[in-house]
Amino acid sequence: MAKVKYYYDAENLAYRILKPKAGRNVGYIVLFLVAAGLFGFLCFVVLLNTPFFETPKDRLQAREIENMKIRYEILNRKMDQVDEVLGNIEDRDNNLYRTYFNASAIPEEQRKAGFGGVNRYKDLEGYDNSELVVNTTKRLDVISKELVIQSKSLDEIAKLAKDKEKLLSAIPAIQPVKNEDLRQMASGFGYRSDPFTKIRKFHAGMDFSARTGTPIYATGDGVVVTADNKASGYGNHIVIRHGFGYETLYGHMSKYKVKAGQKVKRGDVIGYVGSTGRSEAPHLHYEVHKNGEVVNPLNFYYGNISAKEFILISKLANQENQSLD
């Protein structure tokens, strides 16, 4: 039962019942309804943000997020495998390939260097799983950079290998006259007695004694730069430029089979033994030059003779006898 309220009527000196206005009750009802609505809305928002109340869309998004995490985990495992394989390749590159070709190793800090300067991953920050996404992206970028560096290194190794192949072909590595065609190893590199003056002087090559007309072979790949008889003392002679600082000279030929500017391969017949120029008997005078200086040809006969033959030729060549030119 509602309480009855009274007020004092001073004119009539009596208490009278206070009657409420009709509109006030309506206002109270409206205020209650508004308050109840706000409270209900607040409770609804709170429930939406708790795990106790999920919509189908929320459940779908949650599954997609978990699926994304699993995929990132798989991706990181695959990158572990790529990183291991790449590490093995880098190790062989530094300690095998680059060592063999006398190339400097690529420093580890250069291979593993990150990306400085501007934050490349700012757009990926600020989300619930930003750390996972950013770290994975960074790692993928570093591996990509390592692959680029390794690819360039292998390109360099391939070029060095081609140059090495050219070098091996250019080195004068065989005898210019075959052993079966030799009469004897007449004279070696070093001080010898001059056949004409009988004075001891430096002999800049090796003399191969053979019959006139015996074939003479190019000892390495190269280009003929001289094929004439204009040089004093050598008679008919040939000079081949092999590249990499190597040149060879073949003197006292009866005739030559090549001309200046012609490319030759190791083993090609370039002329024939003779006794032209300042010569005492039919033979080939053979010289090897490296970077403009004469070197002992004996150090290069590893391409077509056995160890036993090399020892025999070495003994004969080192005898301080008389040269044939």
Rank of each mutant, 00 (worst) to 15 (best):
R200G: 09
T197D: 02
F44S: 14
F189A: 00
Y72L: 15
I74K: 09
N318H: 05
Q262K: 04
P195E: 00
N76R: 09
A10H: 08
E54F: 04
S104I: 11
M79V: 12
N229K: 12
F32C: 14
E84N: 07
Y100N: 08
L147F: 06
D128H: 13
H289D: 05
D9T: 05
S306P: 08
I143F: 02
S104Q: 14
V134E: 01
S323G: 13
F32S: 15
Y246A: 00
V224D: 06
Y246R: 01
G205H: 02
D194N: 15
A210E: 00
K315I: 14
G87C: 05
K201R: 13
V82S: 08
S232R: 06
L42E: 14
H285Y: 03
V288E: 02
T99K: 14
N95F: 12
T197V: 05
I74S: 09
V46P: 01
Y286D: 04
N299P: 05
G116I: 04
M79W: 09
D141Q: 13
R266K: 14
N49I: 15
M206E: 07
D58V: 13
E125N: 06
S169K: 15
I199N: 07
V295N: 00
E287P: 00
R77C: 12
R211H: 05
H252M: 07
L96D: 14
A36Q: 12
D58K: 11
N304R: 06
N304P: 01
L316H: 02
D141T: 11
V224L: 10
V224Q: 10
Q262R: 03
G27C: 06
K178F: 06
G190T: 08
K198M: 04
G277H: 04
K138M: 03
K230M: 10
L298P: 02
T248Y: 02
N25L: 10
F300V: 11
F32T: 15
E54L: 10
D123M: 11
K164Y: 14
D181G: 00
G271N: 01
N102H: 15
H289T: 11
K112A: 07
V4W: 03
F52H: 12
Q184D: 15
E165S: 10
L48W: 12
I74G: 06
A317M: 04
Y7A: 00
G277I: 04
G277Q: 02
S153H: 04
K265R: 11
E11I: 12
